[in-house]
Each structure stands twice: as structure tokens, then as C-alpha cells.
């Protein structure tokens, strides 16, 4: 179980990006973390996996614990060894490496040869497309294939807990479906998942719980089904107008609305 409580993160000693974020991912569940651009979702992911240092960021308050261990000061390789893997925003495949080599980097901390083989077969089973392109350079592959590599790479470490940062970003609807199904399958096998998304529909449709964040803190949370039905959520994250005819509001109106929106 991952518990983030009252987390405050500052970049470059001045930019306050998270201000008192609290969030829990129970074992075996999918938790969706939603929010618009700049809300602090990626920052949350970085704090968990120890990558803040790379961006001159720092946890100034609060705590992050995983199965009871305090983890916010551990380095990234420790996190991977503890079973937390991350699929980074924007895929970040190693373009000059082949598909197989990309997967091998994911297995860097996995010392169990048999397990590596097993994970590799599993990735190939999940993404048969990669099977055919094993020797190709990742840099030349399509966005969807790169997302598969990124997910597969994270799986190679045999994680118990997976963080996915906007996996649907820039993918065609059909691929979004496929990614969603993969996440659901992984969860069925017992993996806990923190799914960061802007695509609220996709995320909430498979999540158990959802958190919505804004300007560095959680402004709403609850059961995914309930959030999906909530009018405000519909309006701001699904772009649906809750009113008379359910038609899409113009962007300008949403913006206008946004300014006065206030959740407890």
C-alpha cells in the first residue's frame, strides 16, 4: 500500500508545486489521479520514484510510505528494487536502442534470470506487435509501439506497483483502448496501479478510486463510479455539459467557469 500524506514539493527552491497532497493506493487496486496540465501529477509520480532530484526538486514536507517504509529519500534504483516501477510521461524510450535492449534496461535491477525470461515472455504476449520488431530501433517506431515498449520496459523489473503517467497521451482511440485493457489485465494479476491521466473517462472506467487534483493538491476524491457520474467532473474533465441537452460547452465558457469553480 502506498500512502502519500500532506506532501509538499518545491522546485528550484522557489516553485511550490505540491502543497499538501494526500493520496492512498491500496494493494491490488487501480487509483486514477486526474488533473489538468500543471496540476502536479507528474511531480507526484516523481516524488514517489525518487526522480525529483533530477529536476532540482525537493520534498519539503509530508511523507510517502510504501508498505510502511518511508521512501521519499530513497534513490530511484532502490525504488525499482522495492517493486515500484514507473512508465514516464512522454514514453521516453531509448531511441538508439533496439526494442529488446530497451526491455533489457528495464530488467537492470532484476537479478533473477528466470524471472527476467518470464517477464520478457509476458511482455511479448501482452504486446505481440513488439515480437515482430524486436531488433528494430525504438526511435523509429510509432507512438503506440513506443508506449508498448515503455510499459513493457517497466514490467521487466517485475513490479508489484506500477505508476503510469499519461499513458494515453497522443494515442489513437483504439490504442487507448488497448492500453486500458493491458492495465486492467495487469491489475487482475494483482498489481497495484497509480494511473495518472488527463483522459478521465479512460482512467475512471477502470479505476477503483479516483483523485482529482488542481494546483498541487487534491480537490476531490472518491469512488471511481461516483466521480464518473459527478456533474462537475463531467463538466471539467469529460468536457460534457451537464445541463439541458448535454452538448459540449465552448472552450471559452469552460474557462470562464473554471475561474469560479471551488470544491471543498
Amino acid at each position: 500500500m502506498l500512502e502519500i500524506s500532506n506532501l509538499e514539493v518545491v522546485y528550484s527552491e522557489v516553485i511550490l508545486s505540491l502543497r499538501g497532497l494526500s493520496l492512498t493506493v491500496p494493494d491490488g487496486e487501480i487509483v486514477a489521479l486526474l488533473g489538468s496540465n500543471g496540476a502536479g501529477k507528474t511531480t507526484t509520480a516523481r516524488s514517489v520514484t525518487g526522480l525529483l532530484g533530477n529536476h532540482n526538486g525537493e520534498v519539503t514536507k509530508g511523507s510517502i510510505s510504501y508498505n510502511g517504509t518511508e521512501i521519499h529519500e530513497l534513490d530511484p534504483s532502490k525504488m525499482v528494487q522495492m517493486g515500484i516501477s514507473q512508465v514516464m510521461e512522454g514514453r521516453r524510450c531509448f531511441g538508439e536502442l533496439t526494442v529488446d535492449e530497451n526491455l533489457a534496461t528495464g530488467a537492470f535491477t532484476n537479478k533473477d534470470k528466470a524471472n527476467v525470461k518470464h517477464q520478457y515472455d509476458k511482455v511479448m504476449e501482452l504486446f505481440p506487435r513488439l515480437q515482430e520488431r524486436r531488433k528494430q530501433l525504438a526511435g523509429y517506431m510509432s507512438g503506440g509501439e513506443q508506449q508498448m515498449i515503455a510499459i513493457g520496459r517497466a514490467l521487466m523489473a517485475d513490479p508489484k506497483f506500477l505508476i503510469l503517467d499519461e499513458p494515453s497521451l497522443g494515442l489513437a482511440p483504439l490504442l487507448v483502448q488497448q492500453v486500458r485493457d493491458v492495465i486492467r489485465d495487469l491489475n487482475k494479476e494483482g498489481m497495484s496501479i497509480l494511473l495518472i491521466e488527463q483522459n478521465a473517462m479512460m482512467a475512471l472506467s477502470i479505476a477503483n478510486t479516483g483523485y482529482i487534483m488542481e494546483s498541487g493538491k487534491v480537490v476531490m476524491d472518491g469512488d471511481a463510479k461516483r466521480l464518473l457520474a459527478d456533474d462537475d467532473v463531467k463538466e471539467f474533465y469529460l468536457g460534457l455539459h451537464s445541463g439541458e441537452d448535454g452538448e459540449r460547452k465552448s472552450f471559452k465558457d469552460v474557462k470562464h467557469y473554471k475561474r469560479k469553480k471551488k470544491w471543498a
Partner: peptide
């Protein structure tokens, strides 16, 4: 060499 942060995220 290609992407230091992504490499770190893999536990390298």
C-alpha cells in the same frame, strides 16, 4: 547516454 532520467527510472 540517451536519456539519463529515463534510465534512472529503470533503476539504472
Amino acid at each position: 547516454a540517451f536519456d539519463q532520467e529515463a534510465a534512472m527510472a529503470q533503476g539504472i
